[in-house]
Design a protein around this nucleic acid. Sequence first.
DNA 1: AATCTTTATGTAAGCGCTTGCATTTCTAGA
DNA 2: TCTAGAAATGCAAGCGCTTACATAAAGATT
Lengths: 341, 341
Amino acid sequence: MNTINLPTLDDVARLAGVSTATVSRCLNLPAQVRDSTKLRVEAAIADLGYTPHFGGMALASNRTNTVGAIIPTMESAIFARGLQFLQEELSLSGITLLVATSQYDPEKEAQQIRALLGRGVDGLVLIGQERPEETYEFLKARRVPFVLMWTSAPNSPYCNVGFDNHQAAYDMAMHVIGHGHRHIAMIGGITKGNDRASERIHGVSDAMKQHGLTLQPPYLVEAKYTIEQGKTAARQLLRLDPPPTAIICGNDVQAAGALKAVRDAGLTVPDDVSVVGFDDIDLAEAVEPGLTTVHVPHRRMGREAARLIIKMARDRAPAQNISIDTKIVERSSLRDISGQS
Amino acid sequence: MNTINLPTLDDVARLAGVSTATVSRCLNLPAQVRDSTKLRVEAAIADLGYTPHFGGMALASNRTNTVGAIIPTMESAIFARGLQFLQEELSLSGITLLVATSQYDPEKEAQQIRALLGRGVDGLVLIGQERPEETYEFLKARRVPFVLMWTSAPNSPYCNVGFDNHQAAYDMAMHVIGHGHRHIAMIGGITKGNDRASERIHGVSDAMKQHGLTLQPPYLVEAKYTIEQGKTAARQLLRLDPPPTAIICGNDVQAAGALKAVRDAGLTVPDDVSVVGFDDIDLAEAVEPGLTTVHVPHRRMGREAARLIIKMARDRAPAQNISIDTKIVERSSLRDISGQS
DNA sequence: AATCTTTATGTAAGCGCTTGCATTTCTAGA
DNA sequence: TCTAGAAATGCAAGCGCTTACATAAAGATT
C-alpha cells in the first residue's frame, strides 16, 4: 500500500528472459546457475532496482535470515555494546538482527519472544538464564534455536555464551579484600528475575565469607542500574557505622552514582572510600576517578554468540556452552589500605 | 524450517468453526465481527497459541506495521534515548521498530535503507538532513514516508522532527560569552556528511562573530564523538597560546574526554578552563564536574516522530515539520569569569 | 554419431494471510 | 408474520517467493 508497484521476481524474470525459478536461484544458490544467465539476471535486477520482497521470501522458504535479540534495556550501554558486535558478526553472514527490550520484566520478555517469532526470526538471543519455566517450554515447543548471553553455566541445559558472573564478582571481591579492605559494602542490582545480579552478589558474598567476613543488609543494598539509584544507595551506606571502606557495585552505572554520593558527602574516592564497578563500559573510564571494574568481554561474547546461533539455525548444530573469561581492569577508584589500621 | 508446524489461520478457523476470513477480521477489524464469534475465535487462538505469520501478513496486505530507523551508531547513548521513546510510542499503536546503524556513512545508510525496505517497513526514520540526492530520490520513487530526526529546518522539503542545532549551539555560545569568556575554543564533530555537527559549529561561530570573536583552527578542531578523541582534541587546545578559557564541545562524550584532558594537564574544570557539552545524556551528569550542556528533548522528539510517521504511513498524511525547543542545563563545568581580567 | 551423464532451466504447487464480492443471517418496521 | 435493509460471514483469488520435479541442453564416452 505504501511502496507503489515494486518490481517483482516476475518482472526480473521477464526482463532477463528466464523463469522466476532461475532468478530465485541466482539469488539463493548462484552456484547452480550458468555464468552467462547469471549475468543477464543481475543486469535485469540492477536495471529494475529490484529488491526481494521479504514477506514472500519468508512465506515461501520459512526462513527469514533474521535473528532476534531481547535485552533488558537500551538505556545504558551495558547491552548495546555486546549487541553491536553480535550484529556485526551476523551481518557477515547476511543475517539481520532484530532488537527488542524487556525492561527486566519476564512477562514482557515472553511477549517480545512471541512478537519476534511472529516475525519469523530464525533464532533468538536472550540475556541471562532466569525466566519462567513456561518461557523455556514455549521455546522448546517451537523448536527455536536460542542462545543465552551474559551468563555462563557449564551445567546448563541451554546454550550459554557468556562469562561466570559469580566467579567474576568473587574475583573482584578477593581483589578488594587483597587491598586490605574489611568493611565492604555492596550495591547490587535488583535480583528479582535477574540471575546476573544475584550471582554477582553471591560471588562477593562468598569471597567475603572466605575471609570470615559477611555481606548482609544494611551493608548490602539492591538498587536499579541507574546513576541516581546508585547514588541514593551509596548515600545510605556511607551513613552506616562503621562506614564501609570499599563499595562494590553491581555495575558501572551504579558505581558512577556511588562516586557522586561519596563526593557529596564531602569525602573522596579512593582516599576515604574505594568504589569498584562491573562491566567496563565507557562510563567507567569517563568518570573521575576512573573506575576499577570487571571487564566484560563484549566483543568476544557478541561474536561467539553470533557464530553459534548461526550454526544452530542454519545447520541445526547442537547447543553448546561457551564461557569467556573476564578480567579486572585497574583504574584508580580502588585504594590499597593494607598498611593502615 | 526451524519452527515446526505452527498453527495457522486455517487451524484457528477450523477449531472455531468459522472461515479464515472471519479469523482474519477478528485480528484486524474486530468491530466487524459479532461478539459471540469473536469470543469463539479468541478462545481458539489462545488454545492453539496461535501467532500470525508475519510473512503471510506482509505478503497479503503489503503492510508490515513496522517502521525502520537508521541511526549513526548505538555505541553512545545519544540516539538510543530518542529511539527508546520512539519505540514506546510506536508500540502503543502496535507498530514495531526496526533499528539499523550506518556508522555515520551515507553509503551504508543507503544500503540499510534498502535492507529495511526489503523487509517491508511502512515508514522510515532517519537522522539529519544531509545525504546524497540519490538517496532522497530513491525514497521518493518508492513513496516511502520518512521523517528526519535530530534536525529542524522550517524550509526543508522533507519532514523534520527535531530541534535547531544551529540555534541551540548559538544559544550555548552566547551563554558562554555571557559568562565572560572571550578565548573560546570548540571541539566539533566530524562535519562530513553530518549536518548536525556543522550546524553546531556554525551556531557557535556565529554567536562569537556577534561579539567580534572568531572561531577557526587551531581553536576549532573536529573530532569523532568518542571520549578518547575528545581528550586528544582538548589536549591540543590546551597547548595553544593563549589557551582557551572555555571549550565548547559538539557533544557530551567529547566533553567528557575534554574533562579528562584538562585534569591530565594538571588544571581543573571550571576553575582553569570551562567545558560545555551538548545532548545532555546520562554521562553529562555522571562526570565530575557535571557538564553544563544543551538539553536535547529526546522524549518529545521520539514521541512526535512516532506520531507523525504513523499518520503518514497509515493515513497518508502530508509531511510536516515539527520543531522542538532545547534548553541549557546548568551544572558546574562552566564558570563565570566576568569579574576577572 | 549415438548414448548416457551431468548440468541448467522451466513448471507449477503451494507458503499463510487479506480482501472484494457474494451470500447468509439478523434486525426492525409495517 | 413478512420483508427490506443492515450486519456478519464465507468464498476464493491472489500477494511474491521457493523448490520438488520434470524437462531440456550440454558434455562425456564410446
